[in-house]
């Protein structure tokens, strides 16, 4: 099983670096055909590379720290028993912690719903997990500026809450309907 995983990882690494080589070859070919473009392309790429390399290690360290420190159990413990406004904000906060990719969150969310957590809170948690990650916001701040990042963050929070409550209503309404139909 472990060996399988390692093999798979190796394949992914090989594929990724293969893609890098292909992109590099495309760039070199294009630049040798159009030498007048060399300066623009290389300075642009280099500028973005420098900007990225100054923040990427920090972002990765932050994600590593949170992934180890905030366990799934912690999230389940806090999210399972909350309600009201506090529950909503806790769901956003826990979702925003950089603790892993989205597919990790699905089983957590499913388990919580089965245990009877509010659907709206779980949906808010899932959406926050998907789009309001703390390190992600930092990179957005770096590249798109404070105004853009802050406005998008506020709007996302507002609309995610509205969506969570709305979907909960729809699910409850359709569940009621199926129960009624079953009774008939």
């Amino acid at each position: 099983m472990r060996k399988d995983m390692k093999e798979k990882q190796k394949k992914v690494i090989l594929r990724d670096w293969g893609l890098v080589s292909i992109t590099l070859i495309i760039m070199i070919t294009l630049l040798s055909v159009f030498p007048e473009k060399q300066e623009v392309v290389i300075t642009t790429s280099w500028k973005f590379f420098i900007e990225m390399i100054w923040i990427l290690p920090a972002v990765m360290v932050l994600m590593g720290l949170f992934a180890v420190w905030v366990s799934k159990e912690t999230i389940v413990k806090y999210l399972g028993k909350t309600s009201g406004i506090r529950g909503i904000f806790l769901a956003i906060f826990l979702g925003a912690l950089p603790t892993g990719p989205l597919y990790v969150a699905f089983p957590i969310a499913a388990g919580l719903i089965k245990k009877g957590a509010r659907i709206s809170n779980i949906l808010i948690f899932l959406s926050a997990w998907a789009c309001i990650k703390i390190p992600q916001e930092m990179v957005e701040l770096q590249f798109l500026g404070a105004k853009f990042m802050a406005l998008r963050l506020v709007l996302t929070i507002v609309f995610v809450i509205i969506m969570g409550v709305f979907i909960e209503q729809v699910i409850e309404w359709s569940d009621k309907k199926t129960v009624k139909n079953a009774e008939l």
């Binding site: 294009l30 290389i42 280099w46 990225m52 290690p57 994600m63 720290l65």
Partner: peptide
């Protein structure tokens, strides 16, 4: 250790996107 691993996992994608941005 986790950070170093994810750093090297994301680097190829970063390079590809950066080249594409230049182009």
């Amino acid at each position: 250790i986790l950070a170093v691993k994810s750093f090297f996992r994301i680097i190829p994608t970063v390079l590809i996107i950066i080249i594409l941005i230049g182009l």
